[in-house]
């Protein structure tokens, strides 16, 4: 059986000390099988990027240990770094250089000899061969992402870290990148550790997923295993006034009802059976908002953390911002 590509053992990372200490990672344990796409799913600030920084030797580990591509990242960082690739959220290339020169520099940084044929193959693979000698400042976002993945693959790494690789991309470029990640994993026989806060991305790409929040791994498994954790449907209810908690307990099929102010997260066996009973007990004008969700990674995250993955996201949508402001005033 192949060795695990990444083994994380009780890893913790704390920034600062004393009262100002921020525990970015708390006792993280993970084993990632070679040749798989593994997803770290969590909201912004969950600790995903910090974990990648720790596993790539960019930040020092406060406690615990980690092995990447068979090497201890604390004691053998250079050996590990020679076997890892990295794709950043934002595209990081030398804009004054051509695509081939960017590959040349990456080859130099990795101390590679005879890299040219590999670079030609990668340029052809990513359909960049005819633009190889153009400055990358003239490339589209999709082309720049492709080149960045080519850089990550140049030295035939065993593990590639992709830190929110589709953040800020339009839908079609994101889809293109999903296809690339899937192909790259198969054709280049690498392990991919991908962080994302897009539920559908984790569901589509990853064979296994760890849900991370506040620096802790809260759940891990295949997407199906994680979804199986949530039995039944989740009903989210927002009422005008406080509701007596015993009301939900009296309804058949209610597994759990969690209050969040005037909001409720109610786990039920079947929403089809639950809703008619609910409407009989609560006046319709008392209900501000109600939604039903079938089992998905979104409901898994909601079930585990009690909030949605996007709840802490910065507000980019002005209408959403004003809606939240109005709710806050009420």
């Amino acid at each position: 059986m192949a060795e695990d590509a990444i083994v994380v053992d009780h890893l913790s990372k704390t920034y600062g000390s004393g009262d100002r200490a921020i525990r970015a990672l708390v006792d993280v344990d993970l084993s990632i099988r070679s040749g798989t796409v593994f997803g770290l799913l969590g909201p912004n600030g969950a600790g995903k990027t910090t974990l990648i920084k720790a596993l790539t030797g960019i930040t020092e580990i406060t406690a615990g240990d980690a092995r990447v591509a068979g090497y201890n990242i604390r004691t053998q960082p250079m050996e590990a770094k020679a076997r890892i690739g990295w794709v950043a959220a934002e595209v990081i290339l030398d804009d004054d250089f051509t695509a081939r020169e960017n590959l040349w520099l990456q080859a130099k940084l990795q101390s590679l000899k005879g890299w040219e044929s590999r670079a030609d193959d990668l340029l052809a693979y990513f359909s960049l061969a005819d633009r190889a000698d153009d400055k990358v400042s003239h490339f589209s976002t999709g082309m720049r992402k492709k080149l960045e993945i080519a850089l990550a693959l140049l030295h035939q790494p065993r593990v590639i870290f992709m830190d929110e690789p589709t953040m800020g991309l339009d839908v079609s470029t994101r889809r293109m990148l999903w296809d690339i990640v899937t192909q790259v994993r198969k054709e280049f026989d690498v392990t991919v550790l991908l962080t994302t806060h897009y539920i559908e991305e984790a569901d589509a790409l990853c064979e296994r997923i760890a849900i991370i929040d506040h620096g802790r791994i809260l759940a891990e498994g295949t997407p199906s295993e994680l979804k199986a954790r949530v039995s039944g449907d989740i009903v989210q209810l927002e009422t005008a006034e406080a509701v007596d908690p015993t009301l939900f307990a009296s309804i058949a099929g209610v597994q759990e009802a969690r209050p969040q102010g005037n909001d409720w997260m109610i786990r039920v066996g079947s929403s089809e059976a639950f809703l008619p009973q609910l409407f009989r007990r609560i006046q319709s004008d008392q209900i501000r908002k109600i939604s039903v969700e079938k089992p998905s990674l979104e409901t898994v995250f909601l079930d585990i953390t009690g909030r949605r993955i996007g709840d802490d996201e910065p507000i980019r949508d002005v209408r959403r911002f004003y809606a939240q402001m109005q709710r806050a005033r009420r």
């Binding site: 030398d94 004054d96 040349w104 080859a107 130099k108 990795q110 101390s111 590679l112």
Partner: peptide, 23 residues
Amino acid sequence: MRVPLSPFWGLYARELLRTFRNP
């Protein structure tokens, strides 16, 4: 095969190339 001093020459050349390409 890995080449010693390769990162040094790569980064040194990058410094110079970036200057000459930035009038």
